[in-house]
C-alpha cells in the first residue's frame, strides 16, 4: 500500500480535496470516497462509457484516469448537469423520449452527449452515433437515445452548466 497523496481539484464548480493512493482510479474516488455514485462502473477497463466525465472540456472514462491526475483540473460529472433551476435539456429530453430503461448507462450517455453538444451544438444523426459509439447501452437499442440527443440540440443550452466544462 503506497503513501496517500493529497489532491486538490474542482468538481462541478466546487473545490474538492481528497487523499488517495497512487493506484486508485478517479472513478474509485468518486464512488467509494466522495459518495458520488452517479458516475457508474460498468467494466472498469474503458470499454463501456458508463463512467464518463468531462475533464477540462474533454470527455474521459474516469476508470482509466488515476485519481492523482485530477490535481488542478475542472471536472464535470452527472451530478453537475442539472442546476437548481432545473434539468439540463438533455436530461429533460431523455425523460420525454423514454431514452432509458434500466438507466445504468444513462449518466455516461448524458455526460458524453453534453460533451458533444458543447462542441457541436447542431450534430447530424451520423455525428451523434459516431460520438456515442463509446457508450454501451444494452436495453434501448439506442433509437430513443439518439432521438433525445438530436431533440436536445434544438433546445437552447443551459448556459450555466455549459460554462462549467468550457472554461
Amino acid at each position: 500500500m503506497g503513501k496517500k497523496l493529497y489532491i486538490n481539484t474542482t468538481i462541478n464548480g466546487e473545490a474538492v480535496e481528497f487523499l488517495c493512493e497512487p493506484r486508485q482510479s478517479l472513478l474509485e474516488i468518486f464512488r467509494d470516497h466522495l459518495g458520488m455514485t452517479g458516475t457508474k462502473e460498468g467494466c472498469n477497463d474503458g470499454n463501456c462509457g458508463a463512467c464518463n466525465v468531462i475533464i477540462d472540456g474533454v470527455l474521459m472514462n474516469s476508470c482509466l484516469i488515476f485519481a492523482v491526475e485530477a490535481q488542478d483540473r475542472k471536472i464535470v460529472t452527472i451530478e453537475g448537469l442539472a442546476s437548481p433551476q432545473g434539468l439540463h435539456p438533455l436530461q429533460q429530453k431523455f425523460l420525454e423520449h423514454a431514452s432509458l430503461q434500466c438507466g445504468i448507462c444513462t449518466p455516461g450517455f448524458l455526460v458524453a452527449a453534453k460533451a458533444l453538444l458543447d462542441q457541436n451544438p447542431d450534430p447530424t444523426e451520423h455525428e451523434v452515433r459516431h460520438w456515442l459509439a463509446g457508450n454501451l447501452c444494452r436495453c434501448t437499442g439506442y433509437d430513443k437515445i439518439v432521438r433525445a440527443v438530436l431533440d436536445a440540440a434544438n433546445v437552447a443550452p443551459n448556459t450555466e452548466t455549459s460554462l462549467q466544462s468550457s472554461n
Partner: peptide
C-alpha cells in the same frame, strides 16, 4: 398515454441507487 416515468428524475441525475452503489 406516455407519462414521464416515476423513477426517471433519479435516473437522469445520478441519484438512483443501484446495487453497485450500496455503501
Amino acid at each position: 398515454t406516455r407519462p414521464i416515468r416515476h423513477d426517471g428524475l433519479d435516473k437522469v441525475t445520478g441519484r438512483a441507487v443501484y446495487g453497485i452503489d450500496q455503501n
